[in-house]
Structure formats: structure tokens, C-alpha cells
Design a protein around this nucleic acid. Structure first.
Lengths: 235, 235
DNA sequence: TATATTTGCGTAATTACTACGCAAATTAAA
DNA sequence: TTTAATTTGCGTAGTAATTACGCAAATATA
């Protein structure tokens, strides 16, 4: 392939997307990282991502890199922030449009994609030193998740289709970093009338089994149109 | 100057910033637009903005274009969203990192900067057909402002240093697009203990004069550190 | 069968929100 | 000068939401 083909009148930064992928295993929040095989930051762990193509928008690029590098598809993804520090890449000027994604760990077990790089889930408390400014991007995503879970039902994206109220409760405690009264949390969540009761108990519990629920996404969409607000500010 | 100087191995999109500048004149929300002097979209109105330099980050670029095109400096500005549709510019691939800014119309009277283009405040109800996808960017900014004013004290950025409670009340009604009980609004706002009472009345009122207040930014910053939340969700 | 543990429901006390009434201040009209 | 009209500022009662718990039901294990 011919090199140095693209010529412009003015200098242009390179543009990439990077994605912070959160997962929840019932105990703690995890983030999916890939091990870099090339310089710069060779052997460092990094967020999945890469250069944008000329015929795709940023979200399409983020989803493509996710598929190629982690084999994840059809997951919740949302634009986070665009990082544009002049020195964020030691090679040359690179601007990164960052996304964050939420994955049901139970459904998808991410593995190395065609990229053939090492892929691994890290608990947030054990994230290693990251490449580029990815530590900052991760922290921004964490704050966004913490802020957004209070007024949008995105927590369900991290749980299996059917989940129990104690699981949902634990998830909120972990993400918000506070302890929440179990009984008041239950009342609040059930009060939205957005949980479908499957009249089915979780199996294999070492004590009283919890009931299984699922989130009524369709009803939520409808209510949202009429101004409904999923308000978990005071939980 | 030599042309076609910049050569890259892979194609790169051009990167711009665009800025939605909101102002409030006591009666309605306005947005500052500039008239394009060149193709494409010659003679259309557009958001101030332009191509990013290689030695500046996106916010610096947005502030530079603001200064050059509208003579506005040192105003509230915040990243909004990055727009990356493949066809958003008819000439070539352009990605825009959009910002929104809030201006005290009383303090600064924006005028054409060195750009020498026509600059004008438009009420939101009278915005003409805009260049590129700027109508979409404006709508995104409007939604962001509406959402954010409920939990961050950004409304004050649109008012003069000293303002009255009726003015603040009107601003919230306009931005949220609802009518709010005057007396409950007053109680809520004063309840935060973040307004400094100047024991001074506004002059030239055609009836009972309202008291002047200013926002205690310093106290807000301190409270924020300790988890204080400016909650205007139920107003 | 008793024990430990967790789930699920309920209730009282407190706090916040909503919907108003009304007096005080001020200008314009009578 | 008085009256009317308008707007500001404060208060209060009724309702709804939040907080802080108590306790019985369910279930595996001892």
C-alpha cells in the first residue's frame, strides 16, 4: 500500500475513540482493559479504542473497536467527553472522543477479539497504571456513572435480564459509594412501578431466596415521553 | 504560504469547535450567531467556531474563536457534545467538538470581533435556518441547559452580578418552560443560604422595588466539596 | 428441631413540597 | 391627597416524600 497519501492544506489532529466498559459481578465494579502490544506504552493496559474511519461516525467507530478488540456487541454505549490535551499522546496530536459502556457480565463474557491482544476485567480498586491519559478518562466515566444512575435507569444495563432487589441494591451502594437502607431502597424502586415481578425465586441461595424481577423498559420509554423522571436523588 | 504541506499516512478528519452562546435579557433566552461570509452556507447564520490549532486544546480553541468572532472573554463555557456525522459538512469530513457558554447580557454587549462578520443576538423563538447541523447543536445545548439548571447553579451565569429574586424566578420559568409558584421558588432559593442579601433595592421599578441579591459562589464551592447538592428538581 | 441469615412488609416521626392568603411597598390615576 | 393597581415578601395549612427502624417469613445448616 502506498504510504503518505493524504495531503492537507492545514495540519489536522488524528482522531480516535476510546471506551470505558463497566461490568458488575455482584460484588464490585469492573472495567475491561486490553494490553497494548505496540509502542507507545507497549505492555501497558489501556481502554479499547482506535482511529476513526472517514466513513463512520464516532459511535460507530467505538462500537467497531469494541467488537474487534473485545467481541462485545449490542451493548449500552454513550458519549462521555472529548479529550484534547495537546500532549496526551507522545507521538503526535491525537484527540479522543471517549465513550462509556455498560455490560451484563452474566450474559457476555468478553474475550479477546480479532485484535488478538490480551483482554481482562479489572476491579476498579485494582486497575494498573494505564496508557496515555486513560486513567483520567476512566475517572471521568466513573463520575458520570455515579451521577447518572441517580436520574436514569442505567443500572439495569449492568445486571442480568432477571435480577433480585438485593442485587440492585448492592449495585447502587457500590456505584454511589454509600450505604443505603435496604427496606427504603426496595420501597423506592418498587414505587416506580417499573419492575416486572416474575413470581420466581432465585435458585441456590444459602438462605431465604429472593424474588426475580426484570426492568420494564417499554413502560419506562412511554412514561419518559410524558415527563416521567426516574428520580433516585434521595434514595 | 506554501500549500498542501501536511501529509499523513492515513486520512484524518478536520476538527473544529462550535459554541452555543446563551444570553438572557430579562424576558427571553437569546443565542449569539454570526453571519457566514464564505461558502459553504454563505450568508447563513451559524454558531461561532472554527478549526482547532495543533498547539491548543478544544476549550482553548472555543474561547479563542469566541474572542475573535464575538469579542467575548472570561465567560462560563462547558463542553457539550462532539458531533461527528459523516455528512455534516458538504466539503469534507469535519468533526465538531461543541461547547455551550452562558453570558451576562448586562455586562458584556457582544459585538463583531476581528472576524468582521455580522454578529447578532437572536431570541430562541426567532432563530433563522442555520448552517451545517448547527440547529441540532443548538437544540442539544438547550436540552443540556434545561437539565443542568436543576442541579447546578448555572442560572446565575446568565444574570448580572446583582439580581432580584423575581428575575431569577423568571429565568427558571423560561429555561424550564413551566410556570413556578413565585413564593415557593423564593423559599427554595433562599433556603440554600447561598444568596447574599445586599439590603439594597433595585431602582426605577414601576411598583414595589425588589431586593438585590448576589450568588455566594465561594460558599457554594465549599459546600460542594462536602457533598452539598444544589437540588432544584422539585421547584 | 433449633439457629443463623436474609428477604419482604409495615409503621411512626421527620422533612420537604404544594397551594394558597395577605400585608407592605410603590407608582399611576382619580 | 386619596384611591386603585401592581408587585414584592412573608406566612401557614394540607399533602406527599423520606428516614429510621421493628419484625415476621423463608430457607440452608448445625
Amino acid at each position: 500500500m502506498e504510504q503518505n497519501k493524504y495531503i492537507y492544506e492545514y495540519p489536522r489532529p488524528a482522531v480516535t475513540t476510546d471506551c470505558v466498559i463497566f461490568g458488575f459481578d455482584g460484588g464490585e465494579l469492573k472495567v475491561l482493559l486490553i494490553e497494548r502490544g505496540i509502542e507507545p506504552y507497549k505492555d501497558y493496559w489501556a481502554l479499547p479504542g482506535g482511529f476513526i474511519n472517514m466513513d463512520e461516525d464516532a459511535e460507530t467507530c467505538a462500537r467497531r473497536k469494541l467488537r474487534d478488540e473485545t467481541a462485545l456487541e449490542n451493548i449500552f454505549i454513550e458519549q462521555l467527553f472529548t479529550f484534547s490535551n495537546v500532549d496526551r499522546d507522545p507521538r503526535h496530536r491525537v484527540i479522543s472522543i471517549a465513550y462509556y459502556a455498560l455490560v451484563k457480565l452474566s450474559d457476555y463474557h468478553a474475550q479477546a477479539g480479532t485484535g488478538a491482544n490480551n483482554v481482562k476485567w479489572f476491579p476498579l480498586s485494582e486497575v494498573p497504571s494505564l496508557a496515555f491519559d486513560h486513567a483520567g478518562i476512566l475517572e471521568t466515566a466513573r463520575q458520570r456513572l455515579k451521577g447518572k444512575i441517580k436520574y436514569q435507569p442505567i443500572g439495569f444495563e449492568l445486571l442480568p435480564e432477571k435480577f433480585t432487589l438485593p442485587e440492585l441494591h448492592k449495585l447502587y451502594e457500590i456505584i454511589l459509594g454509600i450505604s443505603i437502607d435496604r427496606r427504603n431502597f426496595r420501597k423506592k424502586m418498587l414505587g416506580f412501578n417499573l419492575l416486572i415481578d416474575h413470581n420466581e425465586l432465585v435458585k441456590g441461595a444459602p438462605n431465604r431466596a429472593a424474588k426475580l424481577y426484570s426492568f420494564n423498559r417499554q413502560k419506562y420509554e412511554e412514561l419518559s415521553k410524558n415527563g416521567f423522571y426516574f428520580d433516585c436523588e434521595h434514595i
